[in-house]
């Protein structure tokens, strides 16, 4: 299955969340890969803590493959090449976890031609042969990468494809996330241009809320009653706003709580971060695990 991670705004937590989903899916025993399609800033290597690709690779990555300069993009086996001991300890039964990094100094494309599209289609089809889950991290906003992905998936109707729109739980982000999907030149418009059916495409899009403050959680125990009721009121307004903008509970796949570790650093949360050193919250891992299951759970993707 192909899963595309997009967001309207930068810094929403798209890369960190989708990387952690991929990691959880691998731990659940599935073969997974992660493609860095954020051509302008290919930094996903840093999240997986692969130092040879922390700012993209110099050996030929996604960008140069799509340009036709190299026959195959570099693949990095995260289980063996990560610098973190906790990641290198691959548990029995875990699936393959492979990173296809971007190119250091790659830069965004301005447009794409038929040849590039063909290469992209071939790449996706080949990866589908090998991996259960192919996560593609697209850059923020209405990017060229998103166009390419829409065009390629339109040519691959037999490979299941799903889209995750990441956004934070704020007024601006809710409105922007909806705009990215339904707005002018949004995902649906561009998808239809490339031959997708609008209704079928919309059924394949779900929203993911990132870095959410849970009002019921212990973090808020110290608040004064007035503060708490004010926050409750704001949250209610946001929920209403989200529903009005088609970003409400019915189209939400899941949400990830604000995590202290992720606030400081972009990384995979290992089980040791939760149970061993206890620096990360169990709820965060639970949320990633849950998303990793829901991505492939058809009941979470029934037509609305």
């Amino acid at each position: 299955m192909l899963v595309f991670a997009i967001s309207d705004k930068g810094g929403t937590g798209r890369s960190v969340t989708s990387s952690n989903i991929v990691y959880r899916r691998a731990l659940q025993g599935q073969d997974v890969c992660y493609l860095d399609f954020d051509f302008g800033s290919p930094t996903v290597g840093a999240i997986f803590r692969v130092s040879t690709a922390s700012r993209g690779t110099t050996k030929g990555g996604m960008h140069r493959y799509l340009e036709g300069e190299i026959p195959e993009p570099t693949r990095i086996d995260v289980w063996t090449e990560s610098d973190r001991d906790a990641i290198r300890a691959k548990p029995a039964g875990a699936g393959q976890m492979v990173l296809l990094p971007g190119d250091e100094g790659g830069g965004e494309f301005a447009t794409f031609d038929g040849e590039m599209l063909k290469r992209c289609v071939r790449l996706f089809a080949g990866l589908h042969e090998q991996f259960d889950l192919i996560m593609v991290d697209l850059s923020a906003g209405r990017s060229f990468a998103a166009h390419l992905a829409l065009a390629a998936t339109a040519q691959l109707p037999r490979i299941p494809a799903r889209w995750l729109v990441f956004h934070r739980w704020t007024r601006q982000h809710i409105i922007a996330a909806n705009g990215l999907v339904r707005g002018d030149h949004g995902l649906l418009d561009v998808g239809v241009e490339h031959g997708h059916d609008r209704d079928a495409l919309i059924d394949r899009i779900r929203f993911v809320r990132t870095a959410v403050l849970e009002l019921g959680s212990g973090d808020f125990a110290h608040l004064r009653p007035a503060q708490r009721s004010w926050l409750n009121e704001i949250d209610r307004e946001l929920r209403e706003l989200a529903t009005r903008h088609g970003v409400g509970l019915t189209t939400m796949l899941g949400k990830v709580p604000l995590d202290p570790v992720l606030q400081w650093r972009e990384q995979l949360i290992s089980d040791d971060d939760v149970a061993g050193t206890e620096i990360a919250n169990p709820e965060t891992v639970f949320a990633f695990d849950d998303l990793a299951k829901k991505i492939v759970d058809d009941t979470a993707w029934e037509g609305l």
Partner: peptide, 16 residues
Amino acid sequence: QESPVLDLRAPFRSNR
């Protein structure tokens, strides 16, 4: 593999 005869739903993932 691109042949329209194939349904692309192989019983398991595998490497070449």
